[in-house]
Design a protein around this nucleic acid. Structure first.
Lengths: 245, 245
DNA sequence: TCTATATTGTCTCATTATGGAACAATAATA
DNA sequence: TATTATTGTTCCATAATGAGACAATATAGA
């Protein structure tokens, strides 16, 4: 048992954290033309969960979210959006977390703070798949990428949380087309082709887009800078590379 | 001091409620061609606040929201949307609530649960101005409508909450045009003219819309039913009345 | 009674956006 | 050197939108 785990078991009152309040993270990355998210896995339990965390007593909640995200991914300056807060009673199920803690050799009392009812604030993040260093938290064994279309059953209401995050991301995609420059930047290499950008949109939206229309719209938004150098590698005309302005 | 207030003072641990978690409500109504929201006023303190509430230990958070809304307005079956959760440390300011409690003749200890740090979940609601029966909570003296453009300074971060609620409502207006039938129903009389509907949109969006285009779009959405009878009262051609399908 | 007035419902036309396809250009491959 | 796949661009038909014109008409006032 690591020192951190000992600290967790002994800190049965959750001292230092706001009680009853958790955060859950849907951390999106883009790799091999697929959307992936980070999941925690608990060995010997066949349980999976979203990365999560708690808010310290002297900490802004949104700062706490950035802190936890840094702990799980090693990354700062991340696109992060708070999308919904989950407060159903059905969330209150001691069984899975008790299983996890027991698999770790811990033996929590019934009123251990981790086993109490939590309301959880959902955040979604867009991060650079290649730069992330996924790191499990003290209770988890691994923190690894899972393809979105192929998720395992998750603890509690975490599948619902993922669903709502994706819904929000899709809606934001439309609205942020106009305003934001570069929400997509962390999901793509620094220089990318129009086809790659289109594939990203198609993957997030879950539907095909028309090539000529996509190119026309993207160029008209005036958020892309066309680079001199060109990609090469395919048996066809070389596409331009772009980066966000 | 009412019985309820006594209960509040004695319940210095907030027994029965989830600790540290509050809800704040931006309750919109439409009257005299103006958007209005409900505010609580605390006599002898010149303090104003959004209606708020807490979640019971055995209650879904969204159910709690509907309960509180019913307590403040007398209404059920209300359009209600959870839009953001506010968790900054700057929210944690004992001064205003202490002032309020003292003005009520209460003398809370420093660690009274109402004086602790709260994270607050923001909801906005759209309700029928004419049917609402605004009712203050046990600590407030009045609960009354204020025109949105003319709000007083509010407690803590409540002005920010109002701002964000309006932002969300405006964004939802566009997206829900397509999907929803009748989010606007509670803000209008059962039968209304196209001009009234347009004025509602203009008031929420804070900008003028073109008359012919508005009519064209609304009719094309196929959400309105044109009634036989016509409005009369103005020195001009009588407009049709509509209701939501 | 008759005219003036304000507002309505609809139509028109120019402009802009979108869907869907065609076309020449071209880097690697065979 | 010809082939192939994919690119950047153009084209045109269709749809959506902006801005205004116009007749219709319920009341007010002459």
């Amino acid at each position: 048992m690591t020192e951190e785990k000992v600290r967790l078991e002994q800190n049965s009152e959750g001292a230092g954290y706001l009680p009853g309040l958790a955060m859950d993270f849907v951390i999106f990355g883009f790799d091999q033309y697929q959307l992936k998210i980070l999941l925690l896995e608990y060995r010997n339990t066949s349980l999976f969960a979203l990365p999560g965390g708690f808010v310290k007593e002297n900490e802004n909640m949104n700062d706490a979210a950035r802190r936890v995200l840094r702990e799980r991914t090693g990354l700062s300056d991340i696109y992060l959006d708070q999308f919904y807060t989950f407060g159903d009673l059905a969330r209150y199920d001691q069984a899975p977390l008790r299983t996890i803690m027991q698999a770790k050799g811990m033996n929590p009392t019934d009123d251990h703070w981790l086993l109490r009812r939590f309301v959880s604030v959902g955040y979604y993040a867009l991060i650079d798949f290649s730069k992330a260093a996924p790191t499990p938290d003290p209770l988890a064994d691994t923190c690894i990428w899972y393809t979105l279309e192929n998720l395992p059953a998750l603890m509690l209401d975490h599948n619902t949380i993922v669903h709502k995050a994706l819904q929000t991301l899709r809606a934001d995609l439309d609205r942020k087309l106009g305003g934001y420059d570069s929400w997509a930047a962390p999901l793509l290499p620094k220089a990318f082709t129009m086809a790659e950008l289109q594939k990203l949109y198609e993957t997030i939206l879950g539907q095909q887009l028309r090539r000529s229309g996509f190119q026309r719209k993207m160029l008209s938004l005036d958020i892309l800078e066309r680079l001199e150098k060109q990609y090469s590698g395919g048996a066809h005309k070389a596409p331009y590379l772009y980066q966000f302005k």
